[in-house]
Design a protein around this nucleic acid. Sequence first.
DNA 1: ATGTTAATTATTCATTTGAATAATAACAAG
DNA 2: CTTGTTATTATTCAAATGAATAATTAACAT
Lengths: 229, 229
Amino acid sequence: MVEQKLKTKNRSPGRPSRTGAFGNVSDLRDSILDHAELAFAEAGFEGANLREIASLAGVNQALIRYYFGSKADLFDECFRRRGGLLAGHRHVNLDRLLEISENPSVEDLVYAYLKPQWDMKYSSPNGAAFVAMQARLHAEPEEHALRLRREIYDASVKRYISALSQVLPQVPKDIISVRMAFLVGAYLFMLNDLGRIGDLTEGHLTSFGKDEMLDQLVRFLAAGLRAPA
Amino acid sequence: MVEQKLKTKNRSPGRPSRTGAFGNVSDLRDSILDHAELAFAEAGFEGANLREIASLAGVNQALIRYYFGSKADLFDECFRRRGGLLAGHRHVNLDRLLEISENPSVEDLVYAYLKPQWDMKYSSPNGAAFVAMQARLHAEPEEHALRLRREIYDASVKRYISALSQVLPQVPKDIISVRMAFLVGAYLFMLNDLGRIGDLTEGHLTSFGKDEMLDQLVRFLAAGLRAPA
DNA sequence: ATGTTAATTATTCATTTGAATAATAACAAG
DNA sequence: CTTGTTATTATTCAAATGAATAATTAACAT
């Protein structure tokens, strides 16, 4: 049996010195969030474990409580941090599109919506973790998960629905809404599952680059949105 | 404090009598599976709890072990039971379609693929639970989850890809494969999320009946599949 | 009759886990 | 300099939980 101590860093208790060359006060707070993100993505809410998060983040477990409160609170904070960013990017992208032209193409709108999360996924391991976290959240039936999603995403989704509705006057708005839900399902699934799509393609997949895959998705979804009602 | 005993049924230990008017030997086994299905759907693998499953199924916890082994084994068995059924239905549906005509419509193919799970969802609370379970499984990154999915679904999915490829000769097969993944994402998400699509539609949704929703999805996906490559 | 096997419960075990509390050090303010 | 506040660790608590074992009883074969 190896002495599995899961030791925390060799910092002494008490308020940390700010004199060090590095080390802003809230470094540890961020570190906790980063590692929590990874843990929740890998193991889900129940499966993630505070001791391990603390250990990997190099802090004492009680510090999590100090900063965030309960495990659920930590999860929420994780989610809000990046989720807010995402929603923001989507708003900005839409603003830009509408600035350029009154009637952007369906493809442009879909792309503007998808690109931010796509980029996030490939920007860093933590970005990818967030995508996985989100996919899991969408599969969870709990009331709480639902509220979180609403809080963070609803506003921007509704704006895209309106914009799509304007460029697709043949399609009634409530049908656009439903199709937007299909869109979210397809892209979340794909983004989270990308590594495995290969299973179905018998090896042909390697010919697709990442960006090409996004293009494929946009084309598929745009065609679906345009379908005659 | 309420006496929370989570008592098991008042059955005596020992081999059960087969003489009763009802009660085949494996009644209890099935009851365990049914309640496990519900529990896994609601709480996920980690969140589900064997004591509670046993209690609700009206059996002793050790009986779960006796029949299934570990918690993970129980999960797998749950999944295989209905997953196998589903895959079977899909095969049958495809066979029928191809019997009628060499070149069925894309809509028919998509419908044939989606309908079995759609029906399962609305056939019973347990059917709905299975759908939720499956949505969760797809969001889980574990190697094990992946193997399960492959084992149960890959064969039928590949058949549908081939069939689609034949009726859509303009679209290269590897693109069909990718689009099929989009399809799975959209429909799984929608099926699991149906109750909440209302959030995005500002109340208009109530005008859709269940069947109409399925039609909408089929139309959307068929259009996506047909999109020029 | 009798011993064997199958199905079932009762009980115990060991570990994990989230939460809580107590201790401690740096810094700021009066 | 004393006192209070903030950030951090060490330690403890209590509950939950999956697994394991032991006990019991009925059916069945010989």
